[in-house]
Nucleic acid binder design. Structure first.
Lengths: 216, 216
DNA sequence: TAGATTGTTAATCGATTAACAATC
DNA sequence: TAGATTGTTAATCGATTAACAATC
């Protein structure tokens, strides 16, 4: 377990390893090799070893990794069991979906309230979480010690909502709006860019259909 | 406009440029410089010029880029106006949300049908798109010439649904399930990894909170 | 022409991969 | 001990950035 700063891309792969290991079929052997993990996830073998070495000592030459130990180390590193209280801003189609999605709890995200400008929504609840007026956003975050803001508002509203989150003390923002947000140092914005993904897919179709130059 | 193969990361940034340019305030000047775009999107100035040069000739020394021309070139490159017919597999929380989300049309994604195993859902429609039985997936794709499959099924079902899509002739898959999919050459899988994003956010909070070594 | 701004070539940086050393 | 597999050091690759040339 090296203690150099972990690389961004390694960090992004860690949840994938964890989920892979936790979903190994019943009755799998207690140890697993980097080669098997790599094949299962479509990664390079060396990359797997390097990634895992950055958070764990569970690997032993000749035996591979103890699955149990590796899971424990990954969970520890990723802060498994530590829940981050979050708010969601913008209860439209996407926002409502994320709000209703039970899977985030598995990743430590606990959305405790939602905010919107639509008077028709305000006052109702989604799975016991209240929908509150946007004006209350900043104060609520500060009083409740909210750590993460999930932004699912239209592009035009994103920056001002972001400002409200920041002034409420939030320092990590998950941004689904298709805009770049200006934030002070110390605040991380992670943009989830659906349009980028679709650009890759549609470019693939274009180049594969139109011109059959490359085939893999 | 260089005609080298475009880099993956450049390609992913192109929709961002397009959206930025299209949302410029009314009455903005007809030309814009790389420096302004870079500042607006939080990118490097040289990177912007290089990215744009890969798809457009709209830049002129001393004047910057003609916004109109640049928009046209980006739209052309990204295949604006070309709709890809898609199916969505797995009408759970997330699937239903994506199905209801009107924004994808802007990116050329046209979901024409959804599939699920839940008999209670089959036969109903969402915004005029039918929910059909999973058994019909492969045949439907082939008959309707479906190009893109959106996978929002549980991890355990992902590979078999993927196989059905592939055997139906689909060659681009947008995978929201937290698993690696095995596909034959020529088929592109783009994985949308929510857990990775959350890992970055929560690691940021951990390092910023726990140890105040670095502050930017 | 001079100056601003683009486009490109070369240098740097970060991540992946290859080669190898360590170890059970 | 020999062999399998991990961990690490060095080489490669791809993307970004810096320096500069081109041009309006």
């Amino acid at each position: 377990m090296a203690s150099n700063p972990i690389s961004r891309l390694t960090l992004q792969r860690l949840p994938t390893y964890l989920s892979y290991l936790k979903n190994l079929p019943e009755g799998s052997p207690p140890n697993i090799s980097a080669a098997v993990i790599a094949a299962g996830l479509g990664l390079g073998e060396v990359q797997v070893r390097k990634d895992l070495a950055s958070v764990s000592n569970a690997g032993r030459p000749k035996f591979g990794y103890s699955v149990l130990e590796l899971v424990k180390d990954l969970e520890h590193f990723l802060g498994y069991g530590i829940y981050h209280r979050a708010v969601l801003v913008g209860v439209g189609n996407l926002g409502l979906a994320l709000l209703s999605y039970p899977g985030f709890m598995d990743y430590g995200l606990h959305i405790v309230a939602a905010f919107d400008v639509n008077r028709a929504l305000i006052g109702s609840t989604v799975d016991q979480r209240p929908i509150l007026p946007a004006e209350a956003l900043s104060g609520y975050c500060r009083e409740s010690g909210i750590q993460i803001g999930v932004l699912t508002v239209p592009a035009a509203a994103a920056q001002s909502c972001c400002d409200a989150l920041v002034s409420g003390g939030v320092r990590a923002i998950w941004n689904f709006a298709p805009v770049h947000l200006q934030v002070p140092p110390g605040v991380l914005v992670q943009r989830e860019n659906m349009a980028s993904s679709l650009a890759l897919l549609s470019y693939h179709l274009k180049t594969q259909n139109g011109s059959p130059e490359k085939s893999d």
